[in-house]
Every structure is written in structure tokens, then in C-alpha cells.
Design a protein around this nucleic acid. Structure first.
Lengths: 393, 393
DNA sequence: GCTATTCGTCATGGCACTAAACAAATTAGT
DNA sequence: ACTAATTTGTTTAGTGCCATGACGAATAGC
């Protein structure tokens, strides 16, 4: 009794066309300026087929020709194709506890317009925050339009749990949001929400990271986004990546979640601040910790070392289970990497023993706090690259 | 700079044909006897297209017609199609520490021929074991051929690490195998090797389990196969699922792997036997433990309860990370489920708190020790169902 | 200037599916 | 019992997409 594998969709000629459009566009995107003949050679399609596909991509403003350029080689020079920097684009939005942000990214992944404002969103009515965000976004979109870009979709990064099927924000504790259904569109664009840690991981992936990694992101809670085979792994119900509640010391202190010895009890915001002797810190506590650590405050450094140790232990379990190519420290903790990494590496080296483990496989995200917003904008861009046929002429 | 997603293969008309063959065959496989019109309705293909595809599938002996049967409804009755039980089949092989086994499974997943012999394979030269296995397999294949079946591939279940890219058995400690390259073919069939725990999980999946689960399998070490979206998840290097070396008590006893407090130190064979007061047990230690537990031996029950507790703690971490639909206890420990489950459930309930967790989501495999062998045979069958075009006329 | 080479396009053909018509086989109704 | 209606499976024509091969265009080397 063979089981239902995936959805069983028949292949059609249109599907074939769709896929080949994506193949050509993806090849151009990945391997820089390429002539039609280059694309044909790389993909296995014929030059004739590539030509026909390029016509369609050109009509949708997805690729542009650079014009014939002397190649130095014998023969007629090719007409190089590149991704259009004036075509469809992605709009990324972010609601943080203390800020709002928006940006537009073109097909090449470059940020072309952005804006950010401080805002006290903790406990603020969602509608109010979203209204202010819409104004911010409108300005960014107008800048982008002036540059010849045409945003094709909007994705909102939320610091909380998002049900990816329904798009409902199940809860975002730091904002006080609960079971919030977002409007379906914003500025005439389809609007989607996604967890910010996931988006940070996607940004990391799409900006050249490896195809399999664990992206640790500590903001409010401690989350881990799993990227598997170039895709974000959401789990059966979309709750994958709750690294913060992996048991580290099974008999440890009781966590807010009810269990004992969760990672958050050792490496969460509250725990670290308490250990550092700054239990009442508020605002940008990460920057505060970094500042004190730079200054050489021993208790702070000690606290971060302990937190890194706990993180490393939990991650060792994750690495043993999931066998990722790399582990990336992102989100707010990226800025504390200097003090967290040594003990994290120590634990990983000691506990990942059954397979080869390179300490350099643990690294700090280069995107910093901008990751989620960038990832949000890139969702739309990647969707276009994956299926160019959705873009109208 | 968009990143390389997957391999970028152009779609061709042959590819379209391949996929639609698979769609039709898969639909027939999943939804029982179906007329061409039924298949067309279910898949969205036209009746004409289905007819053409069925001709090809029939030629490859993959489907057979049952003949027109009165349907009770108005109109010409359909000619029901079912999977052939006389066509291509899969050969599964198994080398255990104390046995050899082989079986042939038809397209419907039914075991049609099997054999099993006791054999002392610990430390035995691999060539010798494989030679005996070949004899066993030959007999099974002859039975299958007499039933009209034609095995199309052989898969060997090995209690050890298999590099899935090269097919080399990196190490199988209990057999004493190390970096062993298996012959490319056996009885004229292409031969592949795969870890037995993975195959057990695949059998579970293909015999109707959910599409996302963690399959715990304790034989020599403790392994966990992750099934994600209906596929076995192997990790970046193929080493995913090392549940046995997830840290449970970070300061615990030193494990053979060099780390401290690995799960194996609490729920591995040695640890459990020692705790049960049977440190010198050998042979079928699982059966021995089960027997003593049934008899009511308190130290044995206590030892199993402790082991279950450690298993549950480690699994709680895994569930928090991976969010599976279910956890299945398979392999040798399946037979000890009665005594392991209560404490496992207790830990899971206490530590999986952030998401809903149903205690029934932890269950014991119904396949028992036959899982890996069945899974091995099913690999070939599934491959045919996934790409029927590989089957010659 | 001539040849060789490479690029992009055009014309032709093949393949796989859709669309529509048709023959076959059954039920329902008069 | 005969006709109408319905459903099945096949047949025929048509469409879309890619492969093949030929052609003009543009360049380097001689």
C-alpha cells in the first residue's frame, strides 16, 4: 500500500515552459552576464529554445541585454544578458519592538530603497503600527518606482509565531499580538507575514550561504531556523526550530514554558542579564552587553561565556541530529559573537564527535540585524526567479 | 546575488511523459482499482492522455486490467486498473549480527517470498557473509520468478554507516566492516546498501505512516531517522540522526565517543544492561530484557524506566527542533515499548510545552524487526512508482 | 579581402498533450 | 422491447514547445 507522496500534479507543456523560463532566468542570475549561447551550453537547452525563452523574459522586464561586447575570442560576439535592475522587485517590511522598517530589493538582490523609524510598538494596537508602517512603505515604494522598479509583493517580518498556512500571526509576545489576521494586501500588493528568524535565515541562504545550515537567532526567545537543501524547513505544523526549549540540564531551573532546564534558562535575555549583574537593563540590552564586554567587565564576559556554553551544548545536539553543513549565529546575538563563540566552539568540538566537525563551520552572520528585513524583501524576488511566468508583461 | 538552489535541469517532453507516467501509476497505486476515466478525473489529465499512458504502463507490466465490471451506475462500465502483482519487484537483503535475510516485494508492497537464516556474522569476513547471502537471495528470487515477478533491483540493509553517495559501508562496528565497497551487482541486479535504521523508517513511511516523523531505532547504537515531507532526511553529509550522542546530562559520564553525558550512556545497550543488573548478557539481550520485565523483575523495569526517561528527554529536544507529526519507536526497542513508553511520554509531555503535543504521537512501530528488510525491498518498488519509465518493456 | 568561427534566428519536424467527435456498453424510461 | 441518456475508451485533428539543421551576421586570424 504505497503511501501518498507529494501532490500528484500532471506535467503540461505550460509547466515545461514555466520550468524552462526559471532555468534560464536562474542561470543568468547565478552566473552573471551570459550570452544566449552560454545559457544554452550551461543548461542543455538549444540556442533556439533559449532565444524564445529570453524573448518572454525580456517582455516581462526580467532580463536586459548589455549589447554586443568584444569577447577577444574568434566569432561573432554574444549579446550578454543580465537580470534587470529596473523590473519587478520585492518589498520587505519589519515590525520590531522598537522600530519599523521597509526596503525594496531588485532582482539582483540589491537594496535599492529603504527606510527605518523608531517606534514604541510594545503593546501598541496592531492596526496603528501597521498604519504607520504603510506610510513608511509608501515612501520606499515611491522611491523604488522612481528608479524604474515595480514591487510585486510584500512580506512582513514579525518577531513571533506565524501560521504559514493561514498567514495568521498566532502570537508575538513582545508586541502583544495574538491571533492577528493581517490585511490581505498593502499598497495594492499581496501581503504575507513570516517569522523574522526564518527570514534572517533565508537572507543568509540567498546571500550566498551554504544550502544546509542551522541559523541561530536570539531576539526575544532563542530560535533556530533550519535550512535543508536550500529550503527553509518549517516542520509538520510550522513550529520547527524551537531551540530555546531544548533541554540542556534536565534537572535545571523551571522555565516559563513549564519544563526544566531549557536553553533559555541559560542563554535567554533574562538569564544572561541576571548573570551579568544587569537584571534591570532595558532597551537595547544587546548593545549594552557588547559595550560592557568591550570595556572588559568580567561578570559580563563570564555571563556570555556561560551562555555560549549552553548554546553550544544545545547546538551539539542539533548538529548530531540534523548534520548541517554549517551553523550561523544571527539575529541580535550576532553582535555578541566575539564573546559567545569561544565557548560555543568548545562545546561543539567536545560534543560533535561522531562525524568530522570543523570549528569554522560555526560562524557569525554577516547580515547582522538587517537580515530579516532583507530576507522579507527577497522572498518575493526568489519567488519570481523560481517562477517567472507569474510576472505579467 | 541569488544562490544556487537545486540542480537546474531543463524540462523536456520526455520529462513530461515521465512525470505523467508516474502520476498515473501513483494514482492507481494509492486509490486502488480505478478506471481510466477515474484516473483522468483525479489527475486532471484528459482521458485520451491517460489511455496513452496506460498503454505504456501496461507494456511494462506495471498495471493490469481487471476487465469491465458492472458499476451500478448509468453508462458504460469502466475497465478497472490495478498494480500488477506479476510485474517488476524489489529484492530486499539484510545482514544482521546474527542472521541473514532476503525478501521480494511486489509493486503493491506485499511480501511474496522471503527467507531467513541464523548466521554468526560478527567479525566474519564480509565476502563470506555476502556469498552466503547471495545463495539465500537466489532461492528467494527463484520463488519470486515462479510467481511471475521480476526483481528489478536489490538493496542491502546494513547495521552501520553507509555513504549514500558512494555506496561504501564506512563502518559497521558490530560486523567488523570498515570502508567496504560492495559489489555493484548481485544476481545480475544493481546492488545498493543503506543504513538499516533508515530503511526501517522508510518502511514505516511507505506502509502508511505520516509524512513527517522521527523514527527511533536502537540496535547497536541509538539512531533516529528523520522523515520530512515524505522523504528520508540524510543531512548535509548523510550523518543525520545521531540521536545516541545528543547530550542529555552535559556533565554526565564520558561516552565512548569522547563527549560527556550522551544519550547512549543512559539508554544504550550497555548502560541498560548494567542498570538492570545483567552486565554480562549477550546474544538477544532485548528478548532477555523483555522476558525479565514480563516476569516482574524490579531492577529491569527500573532500568527501562530510566532509559525511557533519557530517551524522552533527548526526543523532547528533537521534537522542539524538528516539529515532527509523530515519533515512532522502532528497531529492537520496539519490543520493549511497554516499559519504555510511560517514562518517554512523561518526559515528552513535560518538555514539549511550546506547541500542542499529543501523547499518542509517540507510538511503537507495527513492523517490528522486519522493518529494515521490508524497507530495503520497498526502495526498488518506490523507485519504479516514482519513475516508471526506467522499466523496460 | 578571405576564411574560420561563433552567435542568434528562422524554418521544419516530432512529441506529448488537449479538444472534440465517435463507437461501445450500460441504465432508465415509455 | 425499444429509445434516450449517460459514461467509457478510442480516434482524429490541433496546439504548444523543444530539437534539428540551415542561414545571415559579426568577429579574429591570415
Amino acid at each position: 500500500m504505497p503511501s501518498p507522496s507529494e501532490e500528484r500534479r500532471p506535467a503540461s507543456q505550460q509547466g515545461m515552459r514555466r520550468q524552462n523560463l526559471s532555468v534560464v532566468l536562474g542561470t543568468v542570475a547565478e552566473y552573471g552576464p551570459l550570452s544566449r549561447a552560454d545559457v544554452a551550453a550551461r543548461t542543455g537547452l538549444t540556442r533556439a529554445a533559449v532565444s524564445s525563452l529570453v524573448v518572454a523574459l525580456h517582455r516581462s522586464a526580467l532580463v536586459v541585454e548589455l549589447g554586443p561586447a568584444p569577447s577577444g575570442r574568434v566569432g561573432r560576439p554574444g549579446n550578454a544578458l543580465v537580470l534587470s535592475t529596473q523590473g519587478p522587485a520585492g518589498l520587505g517590511l519589519e515590525v520590531g519592538v522598537e522600530h519599523l522598517a521597509a526596503c525594496v530589493v531588485d532582482l539582483t538582490g540589491q537594496i535599492r530603497a529603504q527606510a527605518r523609524v523608531a517606534a514604541a510598538n510594545r503593546g501598541r494596537p496592531a492596526a496603528e503600527a501597521l498604519a504607520e508602517l504603510a506610510v513608511l512603505a509608501d515612501g520606499v515604494v515611491q522611491q523604488a518606482v522612481a528608479l524604474g522598479l515595480r514591487p510585486a509583493g510584500a512580506v512582513l517580518a514579525v518577531p513571533g509565531l506565524v501560521d504559514s498556512a493561514s498567514g495568521v500571526v498566532v502570537r508575538a509576545a513582545n508586541l502583544g499580538w495574538r491571533d492577528l489576521r493581517l490585511p490581505e494586501s498593502l499598497l495594492g500588493l499581496r501581503l504575507e507575514a513570516e517569522n523574522e528568524a526564518n527570514l534572517g535565515a533565508l537572507a543568509e541562504l540567498w546571500k550566498g550561504g551554504p544550502g544546509d545550515f542551522v541559523h541561530v537567532s536570539a531576539e526575544a526567545g532563542i530560535g533556530a531556523a533550519l535550512v535543508v537543501g536550500g529550503r527553509l524547513f518549517r516542520g509538520a505544523r510550522g513550529f520547527a526550530g524551537e531551540l530555546g526549549h531544548v533541554p540542556v540540564h534536565p534537572e535545571g531551573p523551571v522555565c516559563a514554558c513549564g519544563a526544566r532546564g531549557c536553553l533559555e534558562q541559560y542563554a535567554g535575555e533574562e538569564a544572561v542579564l541576571a548573570a551579568a549583574g544587569l537584571p534591570d537593563a532595558s532597551g537595547d540590552w544587546v548593545a549594552l552587553l557588547a559595550k560592557r564586554a568591550v570595556e572588559g567587565a568580567a561578570p559580563v564576559r563570564e555571563a556570555l561565556d556561560q551562555a555560549g556554553s549552553a548554546l553550544g551544548t544545545a547546538l551539539a545536539g542539533a548538529v548530531n541530529l540534523v548534520d548541517p553543513e554549517a551553523v550561523v549565529l544571527g539575529g541580535a546575538y550576532a553582535e555578541l559573537g566575539e564573546w559567545l563563540l569561544p565557548s560555543m566552539r568548545r562545546e561543539l568540538a567536545a560534543r560533535v564527535t561522531v562525524r568530522p566537525w570543523d570549528t569554522d563551520a560555526l560562524s557569525v552572520s554577516t547580515l547582522g540585524r538587517g537580515g530579516p528585513l532583507l530576507g522579507a524583501a527577497l522572498v518575493t524576488v526568489r519567488r519570481i526567479l523560481d517562477d517567472p511566468s507569474t510576472v505579467g508583461a
